[in-house]
Design a protein around this nucleic acid. Structure first.
Lengths: 350, 350
DNA sequence: TTCCTTTATTGGAACGTTCCAATAAATAAC
DNA sequence: GTTATTTATTGGAACGTTCCAATAAAGGAA
């Protein structure tokens, strides 16, 4: 039965020592498990701590040995299930290593990102995993080198920043899904969604272009539309594309969210996705499986990327002199219904 | 140009004082902005801090005045977009108040939940917002009263725990959506999904029952089926219900995820949802909008709930003697296609 | 000038922990 | 039975900050 301590709420190591009839040093030894302490003494101290409702004060401890075992996880968009899954992967690995994640959402605001990273440093975070907000400049991260804080950039590469990086194989993935559409016989293929300034879009669009060129397909600049990477953005861009005189027969979207918006727009125009038009996405979020028709997309295993990011960061924390390291996660094609391949196969068989 | 400090990485207030030719007390005054310090001195000190790359050490500061301005946010399932949105609401309010959220995911594990809450206390969190994991017992939270830590339970009410609570109007919401089905002329209505032990299910099922009874409808115990609150669970329960001799004409589901599973099962049995059978959900997740036919459901504004939870917690932190307070968030009906109301209206008009 | 008040600045004592060197007790070696 | 060695325990000095009481400097009023 925890006894709320006498006057103020905080029970300290010294009060435990007094109550247990030992010195504070002994209590400390029990706490850290470092020195040799007689089993019965240890037991007694532990009981006393339990009885008085003791809480370890990590702030005070960190004052002595700067080993905080906390790392920061800075996400640019928590409402995107992709990042939520990434976070789950990160937490899983950190937990196993006895670390705890200080997680924050910047909602694409560089200002908020700056604030949040400062807070984390002030709290003694040993490292930070950063999914950078859209307008992040590499010089925003210079403090890390100077302060010797381990910093890892994830998901969105930040050209010019000399840190470890964990990103998916955007170029290859986009190239694969585009080739898939080409193999299905499509000639006019559009690329939809994302803003030009986003590195991820540049990579994915680059993959799209390389597949098109490799197949000798013509790339119509009118079929390259930017939009915010949201459902509404995808809806708008798709509507624009469908109002063209010469419509495409297939559409590669920046990501799943955009693709789902595009599917809605197509349906609104009376098109049956997968039959009248092919639409594909990127990321393989759980939504992709559940929309109707199910979305053909590129899977990048966000949980796995998160695990990898955490592992890499821990390595860097433990060996601060190590060189920055990069991990490029695999991206593989997931064929479902929205590209029409399934229907085509059925037709061929029947 | 931040100069990485001589030997170890950490620059302290004393080094700043030495470099600026003032005392550490003066630097502290500049830092906290409390005392009266000559503008030129302040300026000079600030410049010196910038020059040496000083980082405030919150741990050391908290040692003196236990004002940490951090609060913990413990989520039971981050992969559920509902909780991600809730978290966004919480962060928004905390940020405005100059607080920072220490966020963690328990993945429904009570053990992990315990770990994570302990960590947060150890780091000096002034309060915690807890979305409890499934098997949480009220006595797991007893420490909060004893330690005087502000604790707020959100989304899942925890009977027997004497804390502030922020939850949606589950009973009223379920009652509303049930009445909607009754008004559409349904007689045999089933309730599907969720496990009996879940408080949220008890509330929603209670709302279902009250609407049925108020309308004088007969409640067939065979039409109350439990399942895990997953898509597969919904699929299984719906399949079971459809194998009954006397099928229901409408189904109220525990939540959207379950409802979507139920829709798949209905389709598999050759039924057209919205015409041959009505299916409704709860939560209004983004998926509800995008399945086909779109799901009629109950919206509960997770972001708003998050904002409210944060506001309530801050209030409690600032006035620890205040009584626990509850907020029951509104739940309103969102009519889409899966209930058949739309088709019925069309038929009436045509 | 002298005294009082306000404005700036300061050293030292906390805060709760860990570590080090020192001691006390128990065991092993001779 | 003495000495070495191991095993348990301990006080005190940090760690980086804030606060308090004290001092120094600067004006204002007599």
């Amino acid at each position: 039965m925890p006894q709320p301590q006498g006057s103020n709420g905080k029970v300290t190591i010294i009060e435990i020592a007094d109550a247990a009839g030992v010195s504070k040093s002994t209590v400390s030894l029990v706490l850290t498990g470092r020195g040799a302490v007689k089993p019965e003494t240890r037991q007694h101290v532990l009981q006393t701590m339990d009885r008085l409702g003791y809480v370890y004060n990590r702030g005070a401890a960190n004052l002595r040995n700067a080993q905080s075992r906390i790392v920061g996880l800075v996400l640019n968009d928590l409402s995107n299930p992709f990042f939520a899954e990434f976070a789950i992967g990160v937490e899983k690995v950190l937990q196993m290593a006895g670390y705890v994640a200080f997680m924050a959402n910047t909602a694409e605001s560089v200002v908020r990102q700056e604030q949040v990273m400062r807070m984390m440093r002030e709290h003694g975070a040993g490292g930070i995993i950063l999914c950078p907000a859209l307008d992040t400049r590499p010089e925003h991260l210079d403090w890390a080198k100077a302060a010797g804080t381990a910093l890892l950039v994830a998901i969105r590469r930040l050209p010019g920043a000399e840190t470890s990086v964990v990103v998916p194989e955007n170029l290859v993935g986009a190239s694969r899904v585009t080739r898939h559409l080409i193999n299905l016989g499509h000639e006019r293929i559009a690329f939809l969604g994302g803003m030009h300034s986003m590195v991820v879009r540049q990579e994915r669009h680059g993959g799209f272009l390389s597949a098109m060129e490799a197949a000798g397909r013509n790339v119509d600049p009118a079929l390259n539309l930017e939009s915010m990477p949201t459902r509404d953005g995808g809806f708008g861009a798709m509507s624009a594309v469908l109002s063209l005189a010469d419509r495409p027969t297939a559409v590669v979207c920046y990501n799943d969210v955009t693709a789902i918006g595009a599917m809605l727009a197509a349906a609104r125009h009376g098109l049956v996705v997968g039959r009248d038009i092919a639409i594909v996405g990127f990321d393989d979020t759980s939504e992709a499986r559940h929309v109707s028709p199910a979305l053909t997309t590129v899977a990048v295993d966000p949980v796995g990327l998160g695990e990898r990011a955490a592992a890499l960061l821990l390595k860097q924390i433990n060996d601060p002199s190590a060189e920055p390291e990069s991990f490029i996660g695999p991206a593989h094609l997931v064929i479902r219904e929205s590209c029409g391949a399934y229907q085509r196969a059925l037709a061929a068989a029947g």
